[in-house]
Computed example of a mutant assay.
Amino acid sequence: MSSSPGIKRREHVDMMYISIETAIALASVMGNVLVVLAVCVNRTLRNTTFCFIVSLAVADIAVGVLVIPLAIIISLGFNTEFYTCLFLSCLLLIITQSSILSLLAIAIDRYLRVKIPTMYSTIVTQRRAYVAVCLCWILSFLTGLVPMIGWNNRNVQGNLSSSSSIVCEFTAVMRMDYMVYFNFFGWVVVPLSVMIALYAEIFRVIRRQLNRRAEATCDAERYYRKELKLAKSLALVVFLFAVCWLPIHIMNCIDFFCPTCSIPKFAMYVGIFMSHVNSALNPMVYAFRIKMFRDTLIKITRRCMLCKPTEPTPCPTGTPALTEKVDVKLQQ
């Protein structure tokens, strides 16, 4: 008995989807593991900014290890209990939220660095950076698990018993008003708007300082030029996040505000792919835009793949002035 063409085409689409998602997952995990390794290997990268970058890298690793496999499983429509499906869907939101909060923490960190450079090291300590990272993840879990306490589609599914099973799909368990009003407007648009304002102010302050050539010393000019270069790189990360994540959120808004509008399934797949690809792009930005990070990756590659020894990176010690110089050096 031959199978129908429709079933074969469906299987072909599923295989293409799974293949692309698997490739994205591998690129995301490998690239962001290198980010974490680079910070572990190079002690001069262990400052507050890279503490938040590591937090972002961990979230991107989770995308490759958890989010993409879960997205594949959910796309295949397996049967499970309602709250099991809801919890799996919430995990996707938690990882996304941790990414945007890490980006916001990076923007605040860079803003303080250029706004109050003389007081920065006393206000933004390593311990406070660790606390900020923990708060980002705790807040991500709290906001991502909101549907578990009632803001979900259980009532839409009818009178389900604890043992009743449903076809697990994201839209079957997640309410779209939560996705639009709470998740998108509240926890994506607002943080992105704050980040845009912060980076605009960062560039304004740096440009103003660089234009004061008569008053600025050579060290001050060098400091702000390096800050400008790093700020551009991190602003690019924010821009890529917005470009990759806004399409899927915009389609959610169209689906919510215009129920009669039809969104092609191909467009939804593209939006999902773009949101996942974002996790693989960040390591490329660091590698191409931050010299110290790029040099560290080259050393890791030489040691692990070419079996060539690398010289140990000295740990910054000494007076506060010397420590500040080393800290500034990482942004070359």
Rank of each mutant, 00 (worst) to 15 (best):
S165W: 10
T22D: 04
V189Q: 04
G64M: 01
F78S: 09
V54E: 07
H276S: 13
M176L: 06
V36A: 05
I138T: 07
L198V: 14
E21M: 09
Y199H: 06
V63T: 12
P259N: 07
F50P: 01
E324A: 15
K229V: 12
M176G: 05
T118D: 13
A216I: 13
T296E: 05
C258I: 06
Y111Q: 11
M268I: 12
I116T: 15
Q126F: 01
I196L: 14
A129V: 01
P117R: 03
C261E: 04
V189K: 00
S262P: 04
I250L: 15
I116K: 08
C253R: 02
C134R: 03
Y111G: 08
M292Y: 07
T48E: 14
L45W: 04
T48D: 12
R127L: 12
S163F: 07
G158I: 00
I123T: 09
T313Q: 10
A38Q: 02
S140Q: 04
S19L: 06
I254A: 12
W151N: 11
G158M: 01
F288L: 14
A242G: 03
I248H: 12
L101I: 08
R110G: 13
L228C: 04
C253P: 08
V114Y: 05
F257D: 02
V238G: 07
A132E: 05
I53W: 02
I138R: 01
Y111L: 13
Q157I: 07
K115Q: 13
V124H: 06
F87L: 14
L142M: 11
L198Q: 09
P5N: 14
P69I: 03
P320N: 04
C168I: 00
T143K: 14
I138L: 14
S279Q: 00
V285G: 11
K308S: 11
R225E: 08
R9V: 10
N42A: 04
L192D: 06
Y120I: 06
K232G: 11
Q157N: 11
I74D: 14
A172K: 00
A321D: 15
S55E: 03
K115D: 12
M176K: 10
L297P: 03
T44W: 09
V270I: 13
V63G: 14
C85Q: 04
G31W: 00
